[in-house]
C-alpha cells in the first residue's frame, strides 16, 4: 500500500521535471563519439588508407555482412574492394573491436534509411572518409615490420637497422 502511494508520488513529481522530448529532426540529439552507428573506413595520419585487408573485421562480424579482397601495392596491403551490407549489419561494433589498425570505426550517424534495400550495400567508395576518425595518431605501418614506400626495413618504431648478413662482427 505504502509503496504504491510512493510510486504515485514520484510519478506526480515528474510533472515538474523539464521536458526531455527532442524535436528530431528539427533538433539533433547529441550522440557520443563512441555511439555505434554508420561504419566508416578511416585514413592514417599520413592520409593513406588504414585498412590493411586483414579480414579480422569480416571474421568477427556475427552476421557476416563484411566482405573484402586483399590486394597489394609496393608492399602495402589494402582492400581491392570493401563491402558492408548494412541491411544485415546489427551495429554491434565487433568489427571495430577486431580491427588492428583502427581503420574501421562506428560513428554517431544513424540516418541510413533507404526505400530500396540494395542501396544499403556500401562499397569502399561509400565507406572511406578522408580523416582519422576517433584515433588521430595511430599508424599501423609505423609499427609493423613490412617495408613500404617511405619506411624501409629497420625504420619502424622500436626497430634496429637491418642486419648485414655478411658482417663478421658478433
Amino acid at each position: 500500500m505504502l509503496s504504491s502511494v510512493r510510486t504515485l508520488w514520484y510519478t506526480f513529481l515528474h510533472l515538474f521535471q523539464p521536458n526531455v522530448t527532442v524535436q528530431y529532426p528539427d533538433e539533433m540529439p547529441y550522440l557520443a563519439p563512441r555511439y555505434r552507428g554508420r561504419i566508416v573506413l578511416t585514413r592514417d595520419p599520413d592520409g593513406e588508407e588504414r585498412c590493411v585487408s586483414c579480414n579480422l573485421c569480416a571474421v568477427a562480424c556475427p552476421v557476416d555482412c563484411i566482405s573484402l579482397q586483399k590486394t597489394e601495392h609496393e608492399g602495402r596491403w589494402y582492400p581491392e574492394f570493401f563491402r558492408i551490407n548494412f541491411s544485415r549489419c546489427i551495429f554491434c561494433g565487433f568489427c571495430e573491436e577486431a580491427c588492428p589498425t583502427y581503420a574501421i570505426q562506428l560513428t554517431p550517424d544513424f540516418e541510413m534509411s533507404e526505400y530500396n534495400r540494395q542501396n544499403l550495400v556500401y562499397e569502399k567508395e561509400d565507406l572511406l572518409i578522408s580523416g582519422t576518425g576517433k584515433y588521430p595518431d595511430y599508424n599501423f605501418y609505423r609499427v609493423s615490420g613490412l617495408a613500404i614506400p617511405g619506411k624501409d626495413k629497420g625504420e619502424a618504431e622500436h626497430e634496429r637497422p637491418p642486419i648485414d648478413v655478411r658482417a663478421l662482427l658478433p
Partner: peptide, 16 residues
C-alpha cells in the same frame, strides 16, 4: 565454421 562475408560477398549483384 568461421567462413566470413556470406551476406556481403554477392551483395553487389543482389542484396538478397
Amino acid at each position: 565454421h568461421r567462413f566470413s562475408g556470406r551476406t556481403a560477398m554477392n551483395a553487389d549483384r543482389n542484396v538478397r
